[in-house]
Structures are given as structure tokens and as C-alpha cells.
Design a binder for these strands. Structure first.
Lengths: 124, 124
DNA sequence: TTATCATTTGAACGATTGTTCAAATGATTA
DNA sequence: TAATCATTTGAACAATCGTTCAAATGATAA
């Protein structure tokens, strides 16, 4: 966390009255910093088109790694690296059947989050 | 877009029958690649705790840049850089009053998207 | 056992990101 | 006009990210 230089304490913009109260109330309602870090980390998973494409592949049913790779026209290795991140964020599950690993969506939050994003894009 | 090396065309995992149909149907339901890029770009904005904190500051009411900077204990410059990204994604608006710029949330999608994220974190 | 297949993993690379610093606008006041 | 304030902008930097390549697991079959 960097040290503040430009921002004076308690007053800025030469108006002091309103700002004090504002700062108090905002600070009170702000969630714990740890939650905000986790939140940013979650959205970082969605912040790559490859991972979003992987999630879309899993929308309908579970798919094995090499099928995902073929669908996205990518190497199995690259897909596997991204699946690792998706697993870490608990966005996908996988089960092993012999040599093959089938991946699927962990829950419905993926669909709702992506749905909200598309809504923002199309309505905005 | 990199060239596929590992993934064979049409068959993989030594099972060919089911996969062909799957690939067809997934390819048909996959959104346009441009939409997926825009979607990833949108979530990239949420993928940083500083920007999420800025959005939280704006949850209640419009706030000027130096107040945001003070609330987050950051330089005005750093905040301004991030506000630029938020503006570019149409997540915040701003209006100028004299020398001061007040920023506010552009619409309710910000709250719903962040809400979904928190839900995923707390329920998972 | 050996061989092969499906997947994972680690290191390396260029590309992107967030912050800092200094300089440049934009707007008000003297 | 000049001076000051609030904010923006550009360049630079370390840090992080996504892919590639090669090597390592994990599991099945010969």
C-alpha cells in the first residue's frame, strides 16, 4: 500500500464541511479489504477471453480437455493451464474417467455473472 | 491466434463418435468471438482491487477525485488513471463543477455484478 | 515390464498491467 | 495578466499474465 502524497487529510478541494461526513460513512460501509482482494481475484478469472470461451464450452455439458482444446483451436497445454486457474477459483469441477478428465461448471454463478456482463454490454 | 498442434481434428481421446456431435453443437451456441473479447475486457476492469474500491466509494453518492484518493489512501494521479479505465468501460460518469470533477456510477449493473461475485465467494 | 495416451507441470518468453513521477490541461481567483 | 487548485496525461518501471516448449505424471493396454 503506497503512502498518500497528494491527498490532504480531512479536507480537499477547499471544501471541508461535507467531505468529512462523507468519508466517515463510506469508510463504515466499505467491505473488508480482504474481501475486495478476493473479489478482484475472482473477476481476474473472467478477464481473459480464452477462459470465457472455456466456460462457454462447458455451458451445456461436461467436456474433456482435448475436446476443449480442439474447440478453441489451442494446445492442450494452454487449456490445461487455464483450467487450473478455473479450478482454483472453484468455477469448474472435474472427474477422471480412465485417462480422460471431464470438466464441468461448478455452479450457476458462472452463467449469471457472464449473463450480467453481456447485459451490460448490450444495454450500454 | 496460435496454431493448434496437440489437438487432432475431429477425434481425440480415441473416442470419435460422441465428440463430433458435441463439437458441432457447442460451436453453434458459442457467441461471436468479438463479444467474448468485449466481455473479457469488461471483467478486466473489475479484476483489480483498487478499481473495485473506487466503485464501492461511489455506491452511495458521487464523490470528487481527491476525496476518492483520500479514502483509498492513494495519489490523485493513480486514482485518475483508474477512473479513466472505468470511464472507458462506461461503468462511471463524471460531471465537472468548477475545478472539481465528481464521479458516480453509470448504472446499476456495477452493483449487480459485484453482488454476484460476493455471492459466489460467500456461498462457495 | 514397456509403450502409448491424456493431462499436468515448470521454466521461459514477450506482452500487458498498476503505480510513480513530472509535466500539461482546465478552471477559478487575485 | 499571473498564480493557484483539481485533475489529467505520458513515460518509465517493476510486477504480473498467457502461451509455448519440453519434461513429468497418471492411467490403460500390450
Amino acid at each position: 500500500m503506497p503512502e498518500s502524497k497528494n491527498a490532504p487529510l480531512g479536507d480537499c478541494c477547499e471544501e471541508t464541511a461535507v467531505h468529512e461526513d462523507l468519508i466517515e460513512s463510506v469508510r463504515a460501509d466499505m467491505p473488508d479489504i480482504a474481501v475486495l482482494y478476493d473479489l478482484a481475484e475472482l473477476y481476474r478469472i473472467f478477464a481473459d477471453s480464452t477462459r470465457i470461451r472455456i466456460l462457454y464450452v462447458l455451458f451445456e455439458k461436461e467436456v474433456c480437455v482435448c475436446d476443449i482444446a480442439e474447440l478453441l483451436n489451442m494446445t492442450v497445454s494452454a487449456v490445461s493451464h487455464q483450467l487450473r486457474l478455473l479450478r482454483g477459483a472453484h468455477l469448474v469441477r472435474f472427474r477422471r474417467v480412465g485417462k480422460v478428465c471431464f470438466y464441468s461448471l461448478a455452479d450457476d454463478h458462472v452463467k449469471t455473472i457472464i449473463g450480467q456482463g453481456i447485459e451490460h454490454l448490450t444495454e450500454g
